[in-house]
Amino acid sequence: MKKIVSDIYKNRIWLLMVLPGTIWLLLFSYLPMFGQVLAFKKFRIDPDGFFASVMHSEWVGWENFKYLFSTNDALVITRNTILYNLVFIVLGLVAAVATAILLSELVNKRLSKVYQTGMLFPHFISWVIGSYFVFTFLSSDRGLLNNVLGWFHIDAVSWYSEPQYWPYIIIFMSIWKGVGYGSIVYLASIVGIDRTYYEAAMIDGASKWKQIKHVTLPMLKPLMIILTIMNIGRIFNSDFGLFYQVPRDSGALYPVTNVIDTFVYRGLMTLGDIGMSTAAGLYQSAVGFILVMITNYIVRKVDNESALF
C-alpha cells in the first residue's frame, strides 16, 4: 500500500498530464461501454430512462449474435470483410509510405506541396458524392467507360451487375480516398528524421535507394507497425459508404460487396433491434481485440520496443 502511494507521488507529474485525457476517456468512452450488456439482452423501454431499460430488459444469452452466423451468407460476409481489409492494410501501407517518401524526395518542393494538397481532396468528399462520381464512369447507358469501350467496338458492360470487376473497383476507390490522408502522418515522420543520418549515409556512398532502405524505412518502422496493429484491430469493421453507396446497393454485387457492416445494416432495417446491432459491434470489437493482442504479442517477441504495449 505504502509503495503504491509513493509510486503515485513519484509519478505525480505524469499522472497530472494524463489526468484530463483520462477523465475524458472515462466519461466519453468507458462510461457508455455499460451499454454493451445490451448485446445479451432483449431491449425493452422502461419509462424511467435508459438505465432502467437496460436493467429491466430480459437476458437472452447469445440470442442476439445468432443471426451473424446462421446462414451461408455469414461465411461470405466474413470472408469479404477480412479479405478486403487485408488488402487495404497491405496496399494502404505500401501506397501511403511510398507516396510519402516520393513526396518528400521530389526536387520541386512547390510541386510536392501542390500534390499533397490535391491528394487530400478525396478525403473531403463523402461516399454519397463519390458514388455519383463512380456512376458517371460506370453507368451502363451513359457511362464514360462504356462510351470509350464503344469507340473500340467492345460490347458495353453493365458494370453494376457484373461482380467480377468490383473487388478491383472497391480497392481502387479505397486507396484513392485514403492515400492522401494516410501519407500525411508518414510525411510528418520523414520530415522529423534527423538530416544528419542521411548525410552520414551519403558520405558512406549510399545511393538514394539505399538511403531510403537503410534510413527512411527503418525510421518509419515503429509508426508502420503501430498503425498496422491498429488497423488489424479494425479488421472486422469496414467503411460502410464504400461498400453500400459506391456499388449503389446493387443486389447482383452482394457476393463481392456484402460485408459485416452492410449485412447488419440491411438485416436490421426491418427490425430496428438495438440488441442485435450492439451484438454485431461487440463481435467485431472482440475479434479485433483478440487479433491485436496476438499481433502485439508477436511483435513484442520479435522487437520489444515496437510493440504497442
Binding site: W14, F28, P32, Q36, R234, I274, S277
Partner: peptide
C-alpha cells in the same frame, strides 16, 4: 512513467470497444 503501459492500454482499448450510440447519447 511507471504506469505508461496501463494508460496506453486505457486509450487503445477505446479504439476497439465503444459504448455505442445510445449510451453515448445519454452521457
Amino acid at each position: 512513467f511507471k504506469y505508461r503501459r496501463f494508460f496506453t492500454f486505457l486509450a487503445f482499448f477505446t479504439m476497439l470497444f465503444s459504448g455505442g450510440l445510445v449510451p453515448t447519447y445519454i452521457v
